[in-house]
Computed example of a mutant assay.
Amino acid sequence: MYAVGDERGNDKAIAKLWKNGIATNLTDGTNTASANSVYVSGNDVYAVGFEFNGAKAIAKVWKNGIPMNLSNGLNAAFATSVFVSEGVVYVSGNEIIGTHSVAKIWENGKATNLSDGTNDADARSIFVFGNDVYAAGSEYDGNNTVAKYWKNGIPIVLTTGNFSASANALFVSDNNVYIAGYEFNGTKNIAKVWKNGVPMNLTDGNNDADASAIFISKNNIYTAGYEYAETTIAKIWNNMIGTNLSDGTLSTDIHSVFVSENNVYVAGDGSNGSKSVAKIWKNAVLTNLTDGSNNSFCYSVFVK
């Protein structure tokens, strides 16, 4: 089991990789950094995220711990998700160009803009199915953020823009495109799944909620995120039926879900009363990745 995130000791966050619970630092702590996504292909472990150069965030990919810059440091840039297919490393993210965030993908380090920079946009998740490259995120339309995804660079809009929304995670299975995210209903954020563009609500709108991760296995839809009721409650939904992973005593959040051999792995973090602790759940059984002495966060899990 592989997981990535960061640990924040003194002033600088250190990007981290955990393999079966054993931590390895991806950065030395000179500059603030974080790892946002992990993918394992063969014997190679890929992590993506960012590291500051003292002034700007540089989008980065680490292959077996060795860093490579995706951006040149002239503009702030962030890598959010990684997928490897037939030896090609695909990364989603965004770069601040001028006054706006531009949604981007990189293929083996070569950048392509998904948005034109007129309005803020980002790409939060990437998935490759056959010869098709999908990325999910959002773009501001002048009034609200619109949930959308791109297929081979062509945008497909999921929401009308009447209320703010975002597509946070994407999974393609049997030519069906599943997306997890949220849409505001005028009062609360509703956690949602879109299947081929058709929305399904995970929550009833009584509390703010968001779906940050999705995984399809044996035609089962696993979605993970949070619902807020006085504190942030970690949740997982199996075929739209929700289960709490935390009791609401202290705030806890989920960022990633992965299913392997009928085991469901979830990555996130939660408060111990004073610090945030990086966490993994396997079939709803919790394991802490850090001891709680420093703030730490776990953003992605991959099992191989």
Rank of each mutant, 00 (worst) to 15 (best):
W194K: 03
N189C: 11
L70M: 05
D247Q: 06
G42K: 04
V89C: 01
A135R: 02
V285K: 09
K16M: 13
L202A: 01
A213R: 06
N294E: 14
V157T: 15
A209V: 04
E107P: 11
N69M: 04
G98E: 06
V193R: 01
V102W: 05
A211Y: 06
S251T: 02
N64V: 02
P155N: 11
K282M: 00
V38Q: 09
V133G: 05
E227N: 05
V259N: 00
D269H: 15
G98A: 04
N144K: 06
G9T: 08
Y2C: 05
W18M: 02
D208C: 07
G248V: 03
V88H: 12
I241N: 15
G273L: 01
Y149T: 10
E183C: 06
W150S: 03
N113M: 10
I154K: 12
E107I: 10
E107N: 11
G54A: 00
W106K: 14
W237H: 02
K275I: 07
G270N: 05
I179H: 07
I105D: 15
A169L: 07
M68V: 13
A111G: 14
G130S: 12
F127P: 09
I96H: 15
G65E: 01
N206M: 14
N201K: 13
T290H: 05
G153F: 04
N272A: 12
D247Y: 07
F184Y: 15
S138D: 13
A121H: 03
A278E: 00
G181C: 09
N263V: 00
W62V: 03
F184N: 15
N131A: 04
S81Q: 00
R8E: 08
N185E: 01
S37I: 08
A278T: 06
D44C: 14
F78V: 13
I58K: 06
G93W: 02
A229S: 10
T159P: 01
Y134R: 09
V172C: 01
T231L: 07
G268Y: 05
A103R: 05
A209F: 06
S164P: 04
I97G: 09
N176R: 03
I58L: 09
N131L: 10
